[in-house]
């Protein structure tokens, strides 16, 4: 089920020194484009009944939170290329959905209001568990907690990488070191057909 090409394409874009080499079919430069693509994903997930409606809607909500985070936390402050990579692959065994950005990353965002965060793994743990907002004084910061609960409820597998840290979410939550250092964020959702 894992589409290595799609994953490699996203990874290449994340770490490329030349971000202008954006994979056009998967590139959402603005939030409006991202939302429109999410609608397309909604239709694709339901075609042929590969994913039941309830799980499909929940997965879309999670995708919405992850993708909108990229825009919310980097607007006016993208280090180089704005926007997100948003691609998916669906076959008879299930689906793989990938979201990525070249933003500031979770640690840089959270350090603005919690300077004591000292590494990327700690930052991911805070982001997924603590009540904290990277856009304080605005009251925000519930999106990734929702994603964590959603991963449990839908029995998907989510790999979330930022910096040199990688979180694995399914029925459990584990944080470790990532193979590649990514300045922004990379999220890979894998759904097995049930």
């Amino acid at each position: 089920m894992v589409n290595a090409n799609l994953k490699n394409l996203a990874l290449e874009w994340c770490v490329s020194e030349n971000p202008k080499i954006a994979p056009g079919d998967y590139y959402c430069a603005s939030r409006d484009f991202f939302i429109a693509q999410a609608d397309n994903l909604s239709a694709d997930l339901k075609i042929g009944g590969k994913i039941n409606d309830s799980d499909a809607y929940m997965i879309l909500a999670m995708i919405g939170e992850i993708g909108n985070n990229s825009f919310d936390h980097n607007i006016g402050n993208w280090p180089d290329a704005p926007g997100v990579f948003f691609g998916w692959s669906i076959d008879n065994s299930g689906a793989q959905i990938i979201l990525a950005d070249r933003g500031q990353g979770v640690m840089a965002t959270l350090k603005k209001i919690k300077p004591e965060i000292s590494n990327h793994q700690e930052a991911l743990k805070v982001a997924f568990f603590e009540r904290i907002s990277g856009r304080a004084p605005e009251s925000r910061g519930n999106g990734l907690k929702f994603v964590r609960e959603g991963a449990k409820a839908t029995k998907i597998h989510l790999t979330f990488i930022s910096g040199d840290a990688q979180a694995e979410l399914n029925q459990d939550f584990q944080i470790g070191a990532a193979d590649r250092n990514i300045r922004g964020c990379l999220a890979i959702i894998e759904i097995k057909k049930r």
């Binding site: 809607y57 909500a61 919405g64 909108n68 919310d72 519930n142 999106g143 929702f146």
Partner: peptide, 8 residues
């Protein structure tokens, strides 16, 4: 589909 961001 309802999300915490919108609903908040």
């Amino acid at each position: 589909v309802l999300t915490p961001s919108w609903a908040d």
